[in-house]
């Protein structure tokens, strides 16, 4: 009996979302009186022993260059084998792009129940129940897994990273790697930008900004804060911003520490994608904008006047020039 967490890497570095997943797995292990182990696939530049500080006892590492590039079918095979060989009964993954591709496969391969998008620790007082986000963030469901092995994917920013002082032991795994059926021809990642899905701070713009040429006030504030940028659906539909920035019911659902909305009225579909944000700030010239009802802080005013002043104040506070 143990907990196994999949620690996702990109370009040789373990992702931040995996630290959350590791902390979450360690807490489940503590709750159920067992230990948490991790699995890393592909060559890494990071010191894997240091992942012990998140409460991970042992890392199973398949350091094969063929695994550097993600493949859901191959990753699933290796994770499933490790679940069996380590006798794990809880498997934790991040509910990110890769986790969403692997977790359903694991569920079928291990014939084990999956809860995707968990927002809290399991309740093990009577069975095994996990709270997950449903209706695109408008509600939660408590879902019970009935199988011996439980698979959970954890939503980004849903569990705080906890750091202690442990050191993990490394167990290298060597295995036959299945043939790759999907060939990756290109990977285009925008460098230097904060990925929206796991960003802690997000600055977002809506139709109130009137056109793509006015986006400077959004990106300047985002840069000063070290935040990711996002937008509402009409903005991405009009092609003012790339569609991967669209947050809302039919776009990305996010839960950052702060969501800063500029010129977004706050339609119910938009709120669904952002209302789990810890702090919501709304700047809108319309005092009747529904977004103010869902906000923690608000300013009624002209974004083109107010936002540059906010950016200046942030820079001053952070000692930036």
């Amino acid at each position: 009996m143990s907990v196994l967490v999949f620690l996702d890497q990109a370009e040789g570095h373990v992702k931040k979302s995996s630290f959350e997943a590791a902390s979450f797995a360690a807490k489940i292990a503590e709750q159920t009186g067992t230990e948490a182990n991790g699995i890393v696939l592909g060559e890494v530049k990071d010191d894997l022993q240091s992942l012990g500080k998140y409460g991970i006892k042992k890392i199973y590492h398949a350091a094969d260059a063929q695994l550097n590039q993600f493949d859901d079918e191959i990753y699933t095979a290796l994770i499933a084998d490790t679940v069996k060989s380590s006798g794990s009964n809880v498997v934790v993954l991040s509910n990110n792009f890769n986790g969403k591709a692997i977790a359903p496969r694991l569920s079928v391969r291990l014939k084990s129940g999956l809860i995707s998008g968990a927002v809290g620790l399991p309740d093990t007082s009577n069975g095994f129940k996990v709270k997950k986000s449903v209706f695109s963030g408008k509600a939660f469901a408590n879902v019970e897994i009935k199988t011996d092995i439980k698979i959970i994917t954890l939503n980004a920013n849903a569990f705080k990273v906890t750091e202690g002082s442990g050191t993990a032991t490394i167990e290298n795994i060597t295995t036959q790697i299945p043939r790759r059926k999907v060939n990756v021809r290109e990977v285009n990642v925008v460098k230097g930008e904060v990925p929206l899905a796991e960003a802690e701070l997000v600055v977002s713009g809506g139709r109130g900004l009137k056109g793509p040429e006015n986006w400077g006030i959004v990106t300047d504030l985002a840069k000063a804060l070290g935040a990711a940028t996002a937008c509402s659906r009409p903005v991405s539909d009009s092609g003012w911003r790339p569609h991967h920035e669209h947050v809302g019911q039919t776009g990305l659902t996010i839960a950052p520490n702060m969501y800063f909305a500029i010129g977004i009225s706050g339609a119910i579909q938009h709120l669904a994608g952002v209302n789990r944000s810890k702090t919501i700030v709304v700047i809108n010239k319309d005092p009747e904008a529904p977004f103010f009802k869902a906000a923690d802080y608000g300013i009624v005013g002209d974004a083109f006047e107010v936002v540059p002043k906010i950016t200046e104040a942030v820079k001053k506070l952070k000692g930036q020039k």
Partner: peptide, 16 residues
Amino acid sequence: LTSISSFELPAPKQGV
């Protein structure tokens, strides 16, 4: 393999 036992709504905001 799973079943929903209950639903809940998020706690309302304190006010802006």
